[in-house]
Amino acid sequence: MFEATDLNRRDARTQRLVRALFLLMTVLLAAPVLLILGVLLVKGGTMLSWDFLFTEPTNGMTAGGVLPALVGTVWLVAIALLASVPVGVAAAVYLSEYAPDNVLTRVINLAIINLAGVPSIVHALFGLGAFVIFFGFGTSILAASLTLAIMTLPVVIVATREALQAVPHAFREACWNMGATRWQTIWRVVLPNAVSGILTGVILEVSRTAGETAPIMFTGAAFFLPFLPASVFDQTMAMSLHLFVIATQVPDVPEALPYGVALVLIGMVLAMNALSIGLRTWLRQKKKW
């Protein structure tokens, strides 16, 4: 039989040590999520009720619910999606199905990477300069949503492109050989098989969009508005900005209130994320080829 040498034993010990260290690091990195959820639940859980979700803030935002902010966030996210999903899917279809390997394609890819990396406050400056002032939308849901749309566009593009590229090339060739045009091929075979992957990306984008604060601060979100928006040219409250406002700008807020608002916000975001992760897992199990 082989005898374990001292060297072997030392290697094995190092291996176990390193493995434990990396596991510890991973856990320390991941633990804050649970910790934060725990803290928010403990301190803000008592706030949660249907009344909290469906009444307006009162007493200078020191009491009452979050209805206008909740509705505002839904408006902002919906309009942002309406703008970004068609453009993002078109861009992804171009990159995945049409783009030749040339300089322009490389420039587009670089633009997408940079669009994702531009600081959110710079997006806010852009939204202010472009949509609010130049295009004359004023501080409005429209201006804020378009700012959010451009900011989250890379999320849709990247997710959609991945979903499209996961569809085997052989399917496209089979369609082309039958005389299908590029678009018929995409519409009848590629997109139907990528739609769930695209959906995963869109849901992820919803979660990103709902949580953003900086881009909407100067483009369309208001500190306090006692009524619900009636059109896209109105300003609106938003959950994310509402949390910022009551946490930093409003005096004498009862301690539990901002925790409650944070809990609702993070609940929305994580629910969307869970949906996205769930969909992805389900997809992986449901193979079509």
Partner: peptide
């Protein structure tokens, strides 16, 4: 595309479309 509709093609590896 009209040209291609005149010509049927069968590949080395069978491709059943996911339909």
């Amino acid at each position: 595309y009209a040209l291609r509709r005149q010509i049927g093609v069968v590949f080395p590896l069978p491709v059943g479309l996911p339909l």
